[in-house]
Each structure stands twice: as C-alpha cells, then as structure tokens.
Design a binder for these strands. Structure first.
Length: 206
DNA sequence: CGCCGGATGTCCT
DNA sequence: GGACATCCGGCGC
C-alpha cells in the first residue's frame, strides 16, 4: 500500500492499556521477504498486573519489557509456541502489548507456507502463536527494534484508520482474568475467540 | 462447544 | 524438584 512508513516511537510511550488500541490497524512487516500483516487484536500487560511476566520484577527473560518502547518482547510458552509483544512506556517500566491477531496485507504465499497447506484461512493469523509462526518470528527476533529500518521485522502505518475499537477480558490468563485489557477492531471476523483460562481467578477481577 | 495432552523454559507457591 | 505457562490442534459429543 502507498504511504506506508514506520510508526513514530512517541505513539508507544504511554502505558500499555493506552497504547494498545493505537496499535490496531498498524502493519507488522518483513519487507525483505515481502510479507506484511495488519494488526486487528491486541492485549495490554503491565508491571502492576498479576497476569504480566513483569509482575514479580525484572528477570533475564522479561528484561526487554523494562527497556525502550518499540522493541520486541518475544517469549516461548507451552514448550512449543513463540509469541510477540511490542514494548511500551518509558524505560524502566515493565510493560508491553501482545499481538494477538492480524489480517494479510502482503506475501500470503510465504505466510501460508510457514503454517502448512492444511491451515484454514481463518486460522492463518488468528492467535498470538499462529501470528508469530506465520511471520517466522522466534527467539532470534527477541529484543529487535521494530522502529529501526534495518530490523528484519518492523512496525509501520499507512492511511488506514480502524473504524471502531471494542474491549473485553484477555484470553487465557489465570490471574486478573477480568481486567478488560484486550482490544480489537469491532466486528472483525478474524478476531480470536475468547477462551477463559481453565482455572481463572474468579474472586478478583483486578 | 468442551476436554485434553504436547514439550520445554522459567521461576519458584 | 516441581508447578505452571499471554497456546494450539485434534478428537469427541
């Protein structure tokens, strides 16, 4: 699409629940391989958040979340899945926004090849691990600056403006299960289905 | 729609 | 040592 350019870092400087809806409609791109997707669903995580990897302080794994906004926090979970977050906020604050779902902009053949021929259209980029997998994102991408033109994966915007933003509880978190920090483009058919954690904390919506 | 198991890193309850 | 994870695919009803 014409007019695409890297996101301004100032867009990411606020707290993650404020920044999260701003990421809807932005483009995650790997120009060197010709792929690009438009983000349609995200979740915020921050330091005062029992569901966040940073809740118990800084560790080697989560250190990137305490660093500069615009870098990629990539984590491995359930022994097999990679997921990607965009770090937000000022340095020293452990917060980020998880990229949960997207739609194809460019490079469908490359994206599809990574996910396998059997995958249905609706499952290609729906869910954080599927999204990361389709774009070839893994631990090697951890910590890269998404706003640096030299990075293999980058965050950009074009003229698109999301029509309306909806919010609701995050998917699959056990603690603070009802905090409404998931944001998506209202009515979009490719937003991931809400799955409450099997053992979600029922006594504490916060 | 619901249940279940996979396979491994992280941080301890 | 061990519980659990910002999940997904397969299978059964």
């Amino acid at each position: 699409m014409t007019g695409r350019r890297l996101l301004d870092r100032s867009v990411l400087q606020g707290d993650s629940p404020v920044v999260a809806p701003r990421l809807l409609g932005t483009i995650l791109e790997r120009p060197e391989e010709g792929t690009a997707v438009r983000i349609i669903e995200v979740e915020a995580y921050d330091e005062d958040d029992p569901a966040s990897h940073t809740f118990r302080g800084r560790t080697p794994r989560n250190a990137v979340m305490f660093g500069a906004a615009g870098h990629a926090y990539v984590y491995f979970t359930y022994g097999m899945h990679w997921c990607m977050n965009v770090v937000t906020g000022p340095d020293g604050h452990g917060q980020a926004v998880l990229l949960r779902a997207a739609e194809i902009v460019d490079g469908e053949a490359v994206l599809r090849a990574r996910r396998g021929d059997r995958v249905r259209d609706r499952d290609l980029l729906r869910g954080p691990a599927r999204l990361a997998s389709a774009l070839g994102i893994d631990g090697a991408m951890g910590g890269v600056d998404l706003l640096d033109p030299a990075s293999p994966v980058r965050l950009a915007r074009d003229g698109y403006e999301p029509p309306a933003v909806a919010t609701g509880p995050r998917v699959g978190v056990r603690l603070a299960a009802d905090r409404p920090w998931r944001f998506w483009i209202d009515g979009h058919p490719l937003v991931s289905r809400y799955v409450r954690h099997r053992r979600a904390d029922e006594s504490n919506g916060d």
